[in-house]
Structure formats: C-alpha cells, structure tokens
Nucleic acid binder design. Structure first.
Length: 700
DNA sequence: AAAAAAT
C-alpha cells in the first residue's frame, strides 16, 4: 500500500500532480528535446495562482529554442531507426498515456474507500501500475492533453509514413468497390442452390434496378443543386474575373441548364420557378448596389446614423472611419431592411452588421426599462464556436457601451453559465446552431422575441449540414424579423434561405475587390508527395505567424506534433480537441506564444488573427470558396500576406481550374527540399510585410 | 472531410 503513495518530491499526497520537471525522458527523441530545453524551465504554469505554478528561474534558457541543422539530422536518424521498430513503440506509448488520467483521480479519491471495502482489489490493481516501467518517463504533455483522443490517434500515428498516402486512396477505392461487389453477387455459388427463386427474382430485380439507376441522377441534383450548378458556370466564364461579371454568369447559366435532358426532372421535383427567379434577383441586386470606395471616403459612422457611444467604442476597437462594406450596410440595416452583403475577407464585416444591430436594438427600446429575464432580441449565428466567440468580442463592447448585454451560446462548454445569463436576461445572442437548438429544445431559450437575425458566413450556413438547422431556427424567431446575411463568398447557395426568409433584400458588395487590389501573394508549389513533410517543416521554420491548413483532423494533429518535434513551437486546431484546448491553442497563436497553428477548415472562415503573414495549405482545398476563405486569414485589413499551396503533380490541372474560379493568379513552381525558393518564401513572407507596412506607414 | 449538441 505505502508504495502506491507516490507523492515524492515533498509534494502533498492529496494534491497529486504529475512531476513534469524532474522526470527523465523515455525516448531518444524526448531526451534530445529535454536537453534542448532545460528541465527546470519546462512546463509548469507561469501564473502564480495556478496549482502547477513554477516560478521562472533567473537566467533560465528559452523554453524552446530552434534546433540546429545537426540536431535535426540527428532526429531524422533517430526517427529512421524508430520507424523500423513500430510495434514496440506503439505498445510503449499507449499504456503509458491511457493510464495518465486515472492515477490522478484515484489517488485523491480512493484511499478512504479502499481501506474499508475492497483491499483485495486495490492490491490487484495497483501493483500493476507500479510495475509499469514507462510511468516515470512520461512526457509532460499527455497529462493535460488528450486522454480520450489518444486512443483514436495513436494507432494512426504509428503508421505515419504510410498515412500520407492513404487519404488519397479511399476516395479512389470506394466507387470501385461497389462495382466490384455486383459482379460477385452474380457469381455466387449459392445461386445454384435456389434455382426456383433466383430465376424468378432476378429478371424482375434487374429491371427494377436499371430504371432506378437511370433515375439516380435525379437524386444528386436534389441534394446539391446549388453546388453543382455553381461550379459549372464559373468554369465556363473563367476569363471574366471582375465582380461585375458574376451576375451575368448566373444568368447565362440558366438557359444552358434547361437544355439538359435531366434538368426538367430537377425542376419538377425540387424547385419552383419562383425559387429560380429569386436567385436571379439576388444577383441582379448584387451588381446594382456595388459600393464604390471613392464614394465612401468622407462618410463617418456618425453620419451613417450610429450614436456617440457606439462610435466611440468603434474607435476603441480600431475602427475610426467606416470601411466600404460598413459604409454600405449600416444605413439600410438601421432602416430595418433585410440585407445581403459580400465583402472580401478581412474587410470589416463584423462591425458592418454588429454596430447597426446594436444601434437598432437601442432605438427600439428607447425609454424602456430593461426587464429581468427579458427575451433576447437579436441573434447572430456563426458556423464555428471560435467565430462566434470572436464576433462576441467585437459586438459585446459595442453593446455594453449602450447598456445592452450579449451572451455566447455554443457547444463544447457547460450550459450552466449560458443558461444563467439567459435567465437573467440578455439582448443579443451569439452562437452556433447546435447548442442554440439544444437549449431551445430544453425550453431554456426562447427566440420568439428576436427581431434581428444575422447569419455570418451565410453561404456556408446554407450548405448541406447547416441548412436544415438554420431553417428550423429561423422559423422560431419573431414574425417579420429582420434578416442579415454576410459572407466573403456570398452566392446563390444562400437562395434556399433567402427565398424562405428574406423580404425584398438589399444586396451589397464592394466594387473593385479584385485580385489586383488584393494584398495577398499566392504561390503554388508542385511537390513530390514524399517531400511534403520535409518541405512543410522548412517553410514553417520562420519568424512571423504561420497558419497551416490540413484536410483532416488527424493530419493537422500529426503536423503540429511533427513541427513541435523539430523544435518549432506549434499547436493544432480542429474538432477533435475539446473546446478548452481549441480556445487555448488559438489564443496561443494570437498572443504569439506559438508561431505556427495547424488547423482544419474549422479555422478557414472568419477567424481573425492580426498578423498572420503566411498561410500554407498542406492539402489543397477542394472548393474555390475554401481557397478564398483560407487564404483570407492573411492579408487582413489591407496588410500583406503570402499563401503557399502544396500540390502533387497530378493535381496541377484541378488547381488551375480552382484558381480561375477564385479569380486568383498564382505561379506554379516545382520544388524539392532545400530549393532556394523555399528559403525565399520562408523569409520573404515576413519581409513583404515589413516593406508594405513601411510604405503604408503602419506598424508591422 | 469538416463543422455543428451531448451522450
């Protein structure tokens, strides 16, 4: 028993905590890292209030310094050795981590119980734990980080070399498989055993099946009318780049579609003529109400109709004068109109809807006392929690400046606080669809008083998984509530929602938002797949903030770990992380505590981090819209940025088409590890920012 | 594939 108590190091037993600092490492890799970062300065909270507080030692080395070329070479060697011994490695890792969580709890909780109740059991259990050789050697991270996930991820990680290749395969394999299956059925030996039935059945079936196959095309059309149509027209219209051309495109598409044989089915089964017409209306107005930047130069927030408190708060937020999109939308929103707005990434859309929304609520309740438990009057919806949180960071101060309250309603965090806020009464809700619907279902959220609804990233919110929740939510708000839809890539995809919920919407976009006026530099690197990891590592090993996009959560996680192993501090952001970690990791990039964030598309839209000067797409996106949003994480508010996309050779053509749709020009370069171009991009991205900042007289 | 609820 006593040997189970492992408080050691003089720490109180009831306050068991992992002994981060004084542990020897358990793997070559880890040992190296430890040497590079003196144990005394490793983890342990910097905050004196944290239970894991460890005061910084005088003259302590940097927590994590860059590796030298030699060290990296050594690591690579170690990896090569390790990789020949995979099974052992995985078995070492797994048990060690999986137990990480339990000891902490069981040490605190069990002693009392165990003594009286089940001595036998506790003896059985603990010896096993004590025997574990790996325990003392455990790395610092696992303790805090990934109890549940680690099980899922580990096996995959062990396969690393092979893993890179896999994502591609499943796609190719599946269609093939289903074809393979059918022939097999025909060949079944079992057939001979049931002559009577099969013979009768099959002819019938096969007839049934074939017609069904012919009908199938109809289904896909029903499922994704907007998408498939959006893609085709753009290709045809490639040469035309400017925003002015888009409406024309959509018109030109229609007739073509109707000529198609399958099309009459589609029209008949899913969409009314009114729907089709409405789509045209949307785009007609997009063109008609483009706002010229010159026209807005002498406009102020005050002249647009915003009150003094709000204007002052906007100035505090860094918005002294309205950006074009703001100049365009504030007045019509205050008039109570439904508004659709497209302004490119980083153009100031949040304030464009946030400020007039607050002003509008204020006017509507002038002179009224804010009642306890009043129902929310405005709702802002976003596709990700991080975005909802970020919108609140902008809207909350504006609201508070006039005495209105906001609350965030999103998942991944306990409900209690959110429900508590609702019970007291808030004016503006900012959140994601899942938790909002959850609370409605529980009767803890009532939207019947909501008179303004904003859909940020509205086109995304109209996509497959989001559309229906959005429709359900929008049906619950006050009759005749004002609806506002914003996105950098607002297009016909919003038609389904516009058609049902918006009344005679005003549509805005900012004229002149072309590639030429963009501050983002785009490069495509054509690489050999085997070189991907190495090239990525050399690209992110730089000064300045770098955002790396990966297609899957697992790959994002793997890359972050790989960068970290190489001595480049990096964290991941994806849906497999708990919300606390998601928030923390994003904050780490924002605050500059790490310079590299590896994310899935959870970070593609809306997320604003001030000075990301390089965006790397480790996996090319599938949609041009995704390309635009991802690359829009840099070059914000007129600053410079570079976007580097890695593709394998066979993807060149697809990539070219996507760029044309996105109306982006980018040179393609074949690159191998160690090429000069990589070095130029690595340092160049930062240099560009400095140059531009100097020229524009803005702090870099 | 990812995201959005919790379980």
């Amino acid at each position: 028993m006593p040997k189970n108590k492992k408080p050691a190091g003089g720490r109180p037993a009831q306050n068991f905590e992992p002994r981060y600092g004084d542990k020897p490492s358990f793997q070559d890799r880890k040992r190296r890292t430890d040497d590079a970062r003196p144990a005394a300065s490793r983890p342990g909270s910097k905050s004196p209030n944290h239970r894991g507080h460890r005061p910084a030692e005088a003259g302590a080395a940097e927590p994590k310094r860059r590796w030298t070329a030699q060290e990296r070479a050594g690591r690579d060697e170690a990896r090569a050795i390790r990789s020949t011994d995979r099974p052992r490695r995985s078995s070492d890792d797994r048990p060690a981590r999986s137990f990480d969580d339990r000891p902490a709890r069981s040490f605190d909780d069990r002693p009392a119980r165990t003594y009286g109740d089940r001595p036998a059991r506790s003896f059985d259990d603990r010896p096993r734990r004590d025997d574990r050789p790996a325990r003392d050697d455990r790395p610092a991270r696992p303790y805090n980080d990934r109890p549940a996930r680690s099980f899922d991820d580990r096996p995959r990680r062990d396969d690393r070399p092979a893993r890179d290749d896999r994502p591609a395969r499943p796609y190719n394999d599946r269609p093939a498989r289903s074809f393979d299956d059918r022939p097999r059925r025909d060949d079944r030996p079992a057939r001979d055993d049931r002559p009577a039935r099969p013979y009768n059945d099959r002819p019938a079936r096969s007839f049934d099946d074939r017609p069904a196959r012919d009908d199938r095309p109809a289904r896909p059309y029903n499922d994704r009318p907007a998408r498939s149509f959006d893609d085709r027209p753009r290709r045809d219209d490639r040469p035309a780049r400017s925003f002015d051309d888009r409406p024309r495109r959509d018109f030109s598409d229609r007739p073509r579609r109707e000529e198609r044989p399958a099309r009459s089915d589609w029209n008949a089964s899913t969409t009314s003529k009114a729907h089709e017409q409405h789509v045209d209306v949307v785009h007609e107005k997009l063109q008609a109400q483009a706002v010229q930047t010159e026209e807005t130069s002498d406009v102020t927030f005050t002249s647009l109709g915003l009150g003094d408190n709000i204007v002052r708060t906007l100035a505090d937020l860094g918005a002294a004068a309205p950006f074009p999109i703001q100049a365009a939308t504030v007045a019509p929103i205050l008039e109570g109109r439904d508004v659709l707005a497209r302004g490119r990434t980083g153009s100031g859309k949040t304030i464009a809807f946030g400020a007039p929304l607050v002003e509008s609520l204020l006017r509507s309740q002038a002179g009224q006392k804010r009642a306890f438990a009043r129902l929310p009057q405005a709702l802002i919806l976003a596709p990700t929690r991080e975005l909802a949180l970020q919108i609140d960071r902008t809207v909350q101060p504006i609201a508070r400046s006039v005495g209105l309250f906001t609350t965030q309603i999103y998942g991944g965090v306990p409900q209690a606080r959110q429900v508590g806020a609702l019970r007291k009464g808030v004016d503006i809700i900012i959140g994601t669809p899942g938790r909002i619907e959850d609370l409605i279902r529980q009767g803890k959220l009532d939207l019947s008083d909501v008179r303004i609804v904003v859909l940020d990233e509205a086109d995304h919110m109209s996509e497959l998984g989001f559309l229906e929740p959005m429709q359900r939510i929008l049906r619950l708000v006050q009759d005749g509530a004002q609806k506002l839809m914003f996105s950098a890539t607002l297009d016909r995809e919003v038609a389904a929602l516009v058609d049902e919920f918006l009344v005679n919407p005003a549509v805005y976009e900012v004229a002149g938002e072309t590639q030429e006026s963009s501050t983002i530099d785009h490069r495509i690197l054509v690489i050999d797949h085997r070189d991907k990891a190495e090239i990525l590592t050399s690209l992110v090993d730089r000064d300045g903030k770098t955002l790396v996009f990966a297609r899957t959560r697992a790959f994002a996680e793997m890359l972050a770990e790989q960068f970290d192993d190489a001595g480049i501090s990096a964290v991941a952001l994806h849906g497999d992380l708990n919300q606390a970690k998601r928030t923390r990791n994003l904050e780490r990039l924002t605050s500059g505590r790490v310079s590299v964030l590896v994310a899935t598309d959870v970070a593609a839209r809306g997320i604003h981090v001030d000075d990301i000067d390089l965006v790397i797409q480790a996996d090319a996106p599938d949609e041009y819209k995704t390309y635009l949003h991802r690359s829009g994480r840099t070059g914000r508010a007129g600053r410079a940025g570079t976007v580097v996309t890695l593709i394998p050779r066979q993807r060149r053509r697809r990539m070219t088409e996507m760029l044309q749709r996105a109306e982006i020009e980018a040179p393609f370069d074949e690159v191998r590890p160690g090429d000069d171009l990589l070095e130029q991009l690595r340092v160049g991205a930062t240099a560009d920012v400095a140059e531009v900042a100097e020229a524009a007289d803005v702090p870099a």
